[in-house]
Computed example of a mutant assay.
Amino acid sequence: MTDPRPGPRGPGRPATEVLSTPRLRLEPLTVGHAAEAVALLAAPSLYRFTGGAPPTPGELTDRYRRQGTGHSPDGTERWLNWMVRRVADGRLVGTVQATVTGPEPGRAAIAWVVGEADQGRGYGTEAVTAMRAWLARHGIDDVVAMIRPGHRRSEGLARRVGLRPSATMLDGERMWAARAYPAAMIERIAWATVAVADQDVMREFFVDVLGFEVRADAEMWPGARWLEVVPPGAETGLVLSRASDFGREPDAQYPVGLVARDLAGVVAAARARGLAATEPATESWGTSARITDPEGRELLVRATG
């Protein structure tokens, strides 16, 4: 991603504030972050698509001092910057930013960086989603990002946060954009449901074999449970509904497919539990495997990328 330039302020305009997600804390940028961020931005691989080189401590201090003002010298741009910190251990894992231009409420050009060691864990999506929600609360629904074609990680993240590629190209980068949408429009898919025979057996399959987390396990009415599992960091969950509670038969197939960073590991974990799993196979649309769950349904799992 290009580095649009940084985080806002100004008469009557909102300043950045601390944002929280289940795994992350987004802190408004200060010059004090520079020393800690040098290591975060030190990997040369981060500059493969954007150009440039890892900043020195002095360069980063000067950059953050400028960005910390919250606006361009001529006042035509508002700069919003957050440092992304992992709650579990307090370590910086990335940055997100928005440059707001134009008549109020303005258009936000957003960018993000996730440290090399923490990529592939959903931190970028989680942080950018929080920033987009903050922008929307302040009336900024017109959001764009400039991404160099072929930067698959950034393209994937852009899609996950609601941006789509446009025909506009600038300096070798494609504009990805999100249209403004009415506040009443549906925001996201919260869950999908599969009717199962035994909730406990299926909970063990998703948690112990596939690495899901239990988002909710609570009584809906006497004798019936709402059991929802979710991949770590994901927004959309899967509700394992007991079919007999609704006077029906268990579903014969899943309403969703899954994506895994380590497809071979998923296959091995399933086989270690005595479950059938096909060898990963590559088709025109990607590499995938089919896992047969304890009740006989096939679950399609595709490799990331």
Results as ranks from 00 to 15, higher is better:
284 S>V: 09
68 G>Y: 12
288 S>K: 13
48 R>Y: 07
108 A>Y: 05
223 G>V: 00
164 R>I: 04
281 A>P: 01
118 D>G: 01
245 D>Q: 00
9 R>W: 02
56 T>C: 10
193 T>Y: 06
82 W>K: 07
7 G>W: 04
208 D>P: 02
187 E>P: 02
225 R>N: 05
238 L>V: 05
194 V>I: 12
136 A>M: 03
265 G>Y: 14
128 V>S: 03
37 A>Q: 11
226 W>D: 00
11 P>S: 01
270 A>N: 13
72 S>T: 12
56 T>E: 12
259 V>S: 01
162 G>T: 14
221 W>D: 07
48 R>H: 09
1 M>R: 05
178 A>G: 03
153 R>K: 08
76 T>D: 15
115 G>S: 11
233 G>C: 01
172 G>F: 12
193 T>K: 12
17 E>L: 01
188 R>L: 14
88 A>R: 14
244 S>E: 15
287 T>Y: 07
99 T>Q: 11
234 A>H: 05
115 G>M: 09
200 D>S: 15
165 P>E: 09
267 V>Y: 00
179 R>H: 13
198 D>I: 11
161 V>D: 06
24 L>C: 08
50 T>L: 06
108 A>F: 03
4 P>G: 00
99 T>R: 13
30 T>I: 07
178 A>I: 02
159 R>S: 01
292 T>K: 12
